[in-house]
Nucleic acid binder design. Structure first.
Length: 424
RNA sequence: GGAGAGAUGGCUGAGUGGCCGAAAGCGAUCGCCUGCUAAGCGAUUGUACGCCCUUUAAAGGUGUACCGCGGGUUCAAAUCCCGCUCUCUCCGCCA
């Protein structure tokens, strides 16, 4: 959510930024609502002031046992008027709020302009793509022939986009999760947290999933609870409605969670395999930072995600998302894309974003400056570190052998009870 | 699921209709005092949204709202009434 005052005072600049993002926002409606709100607010506050002072007089008169009925009669009208204004104010604020809640964040000046993901800027590439003396297979072929991924039974148990892991496959998923959590906690300074996988509507609104992206979420029937699409939601909301002390910042948190996404509108995309599931596992890094440090923190966060792939020996490239590809809440995002030989392409495996104060304002996450005592919004950041299922895909495809077996990267072997190779 | 108790500022905790944005204590900040430490003395110490002033900043002035959340009664609600949420205790059930 953008600051209403900022929006009012920088309307033309924001309008330009939104045009760059391909967003057509009715700012004229905003101006009208904002002006209306302030008019009503002033009127109703004047009336309240009157009521407060007259009520005080009534109290004094009654204490002196004098007659106050004239004043009381007069205030009946005033109270009725206040009630009327209050209702108009409520409706106006609701509309205004609904408006600002669906305006995306303003992108950072370093974000490239573009019309599609084609215009994302590659900022670096790492690693050497493996060469094969045979045609490399896709992960779902490998997974099925190794009997470690069972898509048919996943579909039977639940439906499309759900997968059953088995044996070394299940173990690999767990190994990757633990490897990543250990790396971020032991070497990158994060504190591990474990959160609920269901959250309420306030939490979803705080991080920006609601109200605009309701159709992407699974909702629990008969309750105001939603399945989390990412641990970003519960972890960022840890400090919702709180004021942190400056010397606590930055806060680094990392969490494993299952993630649930309805994937509405992605019919026909990545229908085979683990790439796009309704349920998947992810290790998520979340940071709460002072505003002046947040872009340095974004670089470090992205490097933390890349480090996972370096240790696994999986080639990747990092791209800076262009205006067309940038998410609703983000001011700047780097995607880390792992090389997938079976698909002969790079696929997103981590997305690292700086939300600046966009989420913090929605969720009221603030901190107090030590020297001035002033309260400010923190900047929030998060990044996958990494998507576990897609890391399984990357391991299977990059480490596949001519005989159909898959070598386990050395970094994972301690987590696989020493297993060096998955064979049929 | 049943019965009961509770929710007040950074924390503890008082407050059953007007003098309450809220006592007292703790904590914190600033100042004074003390040879140092400790103690002592004094002052300050919530958030949000308007308006005025000002360079659309800061500071200042002023108003309004907020005592779990949402309604209601009343000239007036932290206080009375209704609904909800959460916490605690006991019983039942349960991994």
């Amino acid at each position: 959510m953008l600051d209403i005052k900022y929006l009012r005072q920088n309307l033309e600049a924001v309008r330009r930024k939104m045009n760059e993002r391909g967003q057509n926002i009715e700012f004229d409606r905003f101006i009208g609502l904002d002006a209306k709100r302030r008019d009503i607010l002033q009127a109703v506050e004047t009336l309240r002031n009157e009521r407060n002072s007259v009520s005080r007089q009534v109290g004094e008169l009654k204490k002196k046992k004098e007659d106050a009925s004239a004043l009381i009669a007069k205030m009946g009208d005033v109270s009725a008027k206040i009630k009327e204004y209050d209702e108009t104010l409520r409706v106006t604020e609701e509309e205004l709020n609904a408006f600002v809640m669906i305006v995306p964040n303003v992108q950072h000046e370093s974000v490239p302009q573009g019309g599609s993901s084609e215009d994302n800027a590659v900022v670096r590439t790492w690693g050497e793509k493996p060469s094969f003396c045979f045609a490399p297979k896709q992960h779902f072929e490998l997974g099925e022939s190794l009997n470690i991924l069972d898509f048919g039974r996943g579909a039977k148990i639940t439906g499309a986009r759900f997968t059953l892991y088995r044996g070394a496959g299940a173990q690999l998923e767990r190994a990757i999760t633990n490897f990543m959590l250990d790396l971020h906690t032991a070497n990158h300074g994060y504190t591990e947290v474990f959160t609920p996988f269901m959250v309420n509507a306030e939490s979803m609104t705080g991080t920006g999933q609601l109200p605009k992206f309701k159709e992407d979420l699974f909702k629990i029937e008969g309750m105001d609870y939603y399945l989390i699409p990412t641990a970003e939601v519960p972890v960022t909301n840890i400090y919702r409605d709180e004021i942190l002390e400056e010397d606590k910042l930055p806060v680094y948190l990392v969490a494993y969670s299952a993630c649930f996404r309805a994937e509405a509108g992605s019919y026909g995309k990545d229908t085979r395999g683990l790439i796009r599931q309704h349920q998947f596992n992810k290790v998520e890094m979340v940071k709460f930072s002072k505003p002046e440090a947040s872009y340095d923190e974004l670089e470090k966060l992205t490097a933390n995600a890349e480090e996972v792939l370096k240790r696994l020996g999986i080639p990747f490239r990092t791209v800076c998302l262009c205006t067309a590809d940038l998410g609703f809440s983000s001011a700047k995002t780097y995607d880390v894309e792992a090389w997938m030989p079976g698909q002969d392409t790079y696929r997103e495996i981590s997305s690292c974003s700086n939300f600046e104060d966009f989420q913090a304002r929605r969720a009221a996450i603030r901190f107090r400056r030590k020297d001035s005592g002033k309260v400010e919004f923190v900047h929030t950041l998060n990044g996958s570190g990494l998507a576990v299922g897609r890391t399984v895909v990357a391991v299977l495809e990059n480490y596949q052998q001519a005989d159909g077996s898959v070598i386990i990267p050395e970094a994972l072997r301690p987590y696989m009870r020493g297993l060096e190779r998955i064979t049929p």
